[in-house]
Simulated assay, not measured.
Amino acid sequence: MTTTDPALTALANGWAALYLLYGRIEAHIERALQSGHGLSVREYSLLDVLSRQHDGEGGHLQMKQVADTVVLSQSATTRLVARLEDRGLLSRYLCPTDRRGIYTDVSDAGLKLLQEALWLVSGSPPSPGDRPRSRTCARGNRTTTRGSWTRRGPSPKT
């Protein structure tokens, strides 16, 4: 017969309880987001992460960074981005300095939906100063069309 360390047993029991509680909270938020705003928790998380981007150095995330942040594979993240882009909540564009890079921005409709859904996740109605809000992103140098990306303005350095 083996003896089990009581501290290890308590730790394992605590972890199991935390995992169960997390699942219940996520399921509750999922139902509320779906019924109230037509969003899944993953979609909400993606919109939230992308809404925090800015035009400063390191302000835009590459798809791998986005995938790591929302804890999805790159292919699952790309499919999720495509679905939200089809709904008009996101737009993709070529990186102005690296032709291989594709960045994603939250559209005005996406920001509005995120703002409406924010109270469900935060537990309190948003005040006028709460994020997300329209970003001061220099969108004049890029245009997007579903399935293809074009660039306007100066050519990137090669």
Rank of each mutant, 00 (worst) to 15 (best):
D130A: 13
E85Y: 03
G101I: 10
L39N: 11
R52W: 03
M63W: 00
S107D: 08
P126N: 07
R99F: 06
H37C: 01
L111E: 03
S35D: 08
L90R: 08
S124T: 14
E85Q: 09
E85F: 03
H28M: 11
T97V: 13
G36S: 13
R135M: 13
V41G: 04
A76G: 07
Y103N: 05
S75F: 01
S73K: 03
D98E: 09
Q53F: 01
D68P: 00
A117L: 00
V41W: 04
L47V: 04
T77K: 06
E57G: 05
G58F: 03
E116Y: 00
Q62T: 12
D108C: 09
L90G: 06
A27I: 07
D55I: 09
L118S: 13
G58M: 02
I29C: 05
S107Y: 05
T77N: 01
E30S: 11
L80M: 11
S73P: 05
T136E: 10
G88W: 01
V71N: 04
L47H: 02
S73F: 03
L114R: 10
L84P: 09
Q115S: 13
L118T: 15
A138C: 02
G58T: 03
D105C: 06
A67K: 05
Q65W: 02
A138Q: 12
Q53T: 15
H60A: 11
R99D: 08
S134H: 06
R139W: 09
L61A: 14
S107F: 00
H28A: 14
H54Y: 06
L111Q: 00
A117K: 02
R79H: 08
V70M: 07
R139P: 08
D98R: 15
R79S: 10
D108A: 15
S127Q: 14
M63Y: 03
S51L: 01
D105P: 05
Q65E: 15
K112W: 06
D55G: 15
R100K: 09
L72F: 08
R133S: 12
